[in-house]
């Protein structure tokens, strides 16, 4: 199968490459690398700069940053993916119903969504995490809920647009029930937008997880996550800047890859945005 043109650019290729590489790391790093390599403390090499023994240096407890960042990938990716999945699972039916049913249902649901959108997503996530108590599972819930209103809004807009297309009306007169109409005609046509938005949301979720963990209201030790590593580095910035740079670069590369992938995906799936980015 030939790749769509938008992926055959250097940006698209780089995006695919980065996303695949990071997914691969998230899946196989915990299999190949024994877990204790990331927690083993080398007391003689605390805050060591990159050396042959520790290619990316060590942290304040003498733990190897390369192993920690590789193993942290799974936590960050897993949290972000689960959170985005959650926001889709809630947002998709919400947006579909709102866009398809219209009238009062739509008015009430969208008033609620608009209200939620007034809360900055990070503030909402932080508050939820603080309320529920910070741990891995609640981080997912916090980010998932915080991202839902935005996704619901986009899906509603798409559903509204698709529902009035002539092919949907034609399908209606072809005797399809409401359920079949939604599943066979509306859903497939809003999926491109949902997929593109999920990719972009995934990038934002990685950033949000890092932010939450950085503030101590996300992933908790001993789980290794990139945000936690950056938080730990704050007190040693002068002596060991690599302790911040290494996890920071990991976050940046992941989000960059997802954004480039998302851009290419949007260009490939959405004929309306042809030439616009």
């Amino acid at each position: 199968m030939k790749l769509p043109a938008s992926f055959r650019t250097s940006k698209g290729m780089l995006g695919i490459g980065l996303v695949l590489a990071i997914l691969l790391i998230a899946v196989i790093a915990p299999v190949l690398i024994p877990a204790d390599w990331a927690t083993k403390m080398d007391m003689r090499a605390r805050l060591s700069p990159p050396t042959w023994a520790h290619p990316l240096g060590t942290d304040q407890l003498g733990r190897d940053l390369m192993y920690r960042v590789l193993l942290g990938a799974r936590t960050s990716i897993a949290i972000a993916s689960a959170a985005v999945l959650m926001s889709i699972v809630i947002g998709l039916p919400l947006g579909l119903i709102s866009g398809y049913a219209g009238r009062t249902t739509d008015n009430v649901l969208m008033r609620l969504v608009d209200t939620l959108l007034a809360f900055p997503a990070l503030l909402l996530a932080l508050t939820i995490s603080a309320v529920l108590g910070p741990n891995l599972q609640n981080t997912i819930i916090a980010i998932g809920i915080a991202f839902t209103p935005f996704l619901a809004r986009i899906i509603r807009g798409e559903a509204l647009r698709v529902a009035q297309m002539p092919y949907v009306e034609a399908a209606r007169t072809a005797g399809n029930s409401d359920a079949r109409l939604i599943v066979r005609h509306i859903l497939p046509n809003i999926m491109p937008a949902v997929i593109v938005q999920s990719t972009i949301s995934l990038a934002f979720a990685i950033l949000a997880e890092a932010g939450l963990s950085f503030l101590g209201l996300g992933t908790q030790p001993p789980d290794a996550s990139w945000g936690l590593m950056i938080q730990a580095s704050r007190d040693y910035l002068d002596r060991a800047p690599w302790t911040a740079l290494v996890p920071g670069a990991a976050v940046a590369l992941t989000v960059l890859g997802l954004n480039m992938f998302g851009d290419a995906l949007r260009d490939a799936l959405d004929p309306r945005s042809k030439g616009a980015s």
Binding site: A210, I230, R234
Partner: peptide, 17 residues
């Protein structure tokens, strides 16, 4: 693209450094 991909606290740390 690079700008939107880096967490802002990472920018902050870089600027402090």
């Amino acid at each position: 693209l690079l700008g939107v991909s880096l967490p802002d606290f990472f920018w902050g740390i870089m600027m402090i450094l």
